[in-house]
Amino acid sequence: MNSPKVVVLDYGSGNLRSAVRAVERAGAEVELTSDFQTALDADGLLVPGVGAYAACMAGLRAIKGERIIGRRLAGGRPVLGICVGMQILFERGVEHGVETEGCDEWPGVVERLQAPVVPHMGWNTVEVPTGTTMFAGIEDERFYFVHSYGVREWTLVTNDRTRPPLVTWAEHGPEGEADRFVAAVENGPLWATQFHPEKSGDAGAALLRNWVATL
């Protein structure tokens, strides 16, 4: 049986080699590229992201990455966003008073976390929904986060016309002062994590294997 082919989208965002290696270890054949057609044709597309929302969106638009994502999803083809690669899937981001349009696959605003200490950096547990494929077998594990911004309110309402996305939550901060934010989303072919599976040890490796198994 052939390994599924995954493209890690290269749009100038951060250290991509660790993502490539992690997905290879999960059982996929991986190519790091910004080529439009190659990214469109792959069995799976991984969209990484490190740094500022506006800079990531500018890099993504420079290679028509938002069109790649949109066309893949219109055809039911899997996409996985990681960290800022998850954030840019939402409608918009607000950083330092600057508002930037995102890919608008989901409604919602990426904004600064409201916790006593920011950034949220280190290992944390997540609140996993029932019926998850992403977290199958790793529902009680911890994952590695590095971020100052997140989606603090989930606003998509499907009114039962389509299967609602499975939303995973996490909290950052001491009890009584903790801020709650979206940690992961499973929405048909579109999966995303605020944490870094490639930095999350065995649990992150298992999550990536779960994703590769769907391709």
Results as ranks from 00 to 15, higher is better:
154 W>L: 10
155 T>K: 11
94 V>I: 14
158 T>L: 07
81 G>N: 08
145 F>D: 12
166 L>K: 15
168 T>H: 01
131 G>R: 13
161 R>H: 15
48 P>V: 02
51 G>D: 06
168 T>Q: 01
88 I>D: 03
95 E>H: 04
99 E>D: 08
104 D>Q: 07
115 A>T: 06
99 E>L: 03
49 G>H: 09
151 V>Y: 04
103 C>F: 00
68 I>C: 09
60 L>S: 13
84 V>W: 05
42 A>C: 14
78 P>W: 07
123 W>N: 12
172 H>Y: 15
47 V>S: 08
144 Y>R: 01
154 W>A: 13
46 L>M: 14
56 C>D: 05
75 G>D: 14
93 G>D: 02
106 W>G: 06
93 G>N: 03
59 G>F: 11
151 V>G: 09
66 E>F: 02
164 P>S: 10
103 C>M: 07
166 L>E: 03
70 G>V: 00
44 G>L: 15
87 Q>F: 05
111 E>I: 00
160 D>W: 02
97 G>E: 11
105 E>W: 00
154 W>H: 12
118 V>M: 12
85 G>Q: 02
124 N>W: 03
161 R>M: 13
91 E>K: 02
145 F>C: 10
37 Q>F: 04
71 R>D: 14
104 D>V: 00
156 L>C: 05
55 A>W: 01
67 R>A: 15
56 C>N: 08
149 Y>E: 06
102 G>P: 03
100 T>C: 10
103 C>H: 00
67 R>T: 10
64 K>W: 04
70 G>K: 06
75 G>T: 04
129 P>I: 04
130 T>V: 07
118 V>P: 07
118 V>S: 13
166 L>H: 05
41 D>W: 00
148 S>V: 09
130 T>S: 13
